[in-house]
């Protein structure tokens, strides 16, 4: 079984926000809301030894998604390949999934009254394409692939980076997005 995931090489990201913009265009994300965005980390340290990096954030498509566990209608669900999605025809807009997400990546779409978030561009993946944020990343910072395939680019990159591969804080949900950071100290 394939395990599609995104790896983000933070050493390459320049914070251009093109992923943020194309994601909004591709997925018709509500004005003022985001499915992915790039957060500035730092600067840290003491002059002249300062560090900073750019941190793209998005739904982590967790292995044990707490948002799915709390959903009272089954609208939030996990596909067999691990992608976490929301069936908008079942969602009642109770927002308990928003409360249960440690990363704050879900929001209530006020236009439709349902909760929305990054789908990992499942519609594109199913058509054999990459998520739009990966395709449009001019720095090739985002890499999409199969975590279960040791020969995939994503698996090789993770292996090569050794202990410089990170995830966001794990509160028991096991986030799946991987981050590589070698040129600065990881601050989460």
């Amino acid at each position: 079984m394939k395990k599609p995931a995104i790896l983000i090489d933070l050493d390459r990201c320049v914070g251009c926000q093109s992923c943020t913009v194309v994601c909004k265009m591709e997925n018709d994300v509500e004005l003022g809301e985001f499915w992915t965005k790039v957060v500035h980390m730092g600067p840290y340290g003491k002059f002249p030894d300062l560090q900073m990096y750019f941190m793209p954030k998005l739904c982590q498509h967790c292995e044990e998604p707490s948002c799915v566990d709390v959903c009272p209608t089954g609208a939030s669900f996990q596909r067999e390949d691990g992608i976490v999605l929301i069936d908008h025809n079942k969602c009642i807009g109770c927002q308990f999934c928003v409360m249960a997400c440690p990363y704050g990546v879900r929001h209530l779409d006020k236009r439709s009254g349902v909760v929305t978030k990054c789908t990992l561009c499942a519609h594109r993946i199913d058509a054999g394409e990459e998520p739009i944020c990966v395709k449009s990343c001019q720095q090739r910072s985002r890499i999409f692939g199969d975590l279960d395939d040791p020969n995939s680019e994503i698996s090789k990159k993770i292996q090569a980076a050794g202990d410089k591969v990170y995830t966001l804080t794990d509160t028991g949900n096991h986030p799946k997005v991987r981050y590589i950071l070698q040129k600065a100290d990881w601050k989460g």
Partner: peptide, 11 residues
């Protein structure tokens, strides 16, 4: 509180 109470039966 529900945005779509008409779908409440799904609960």
């Amino acid at each position: 509180h529900l945005q779509h109470p008409e779908r409440g039966a799904n609960i």
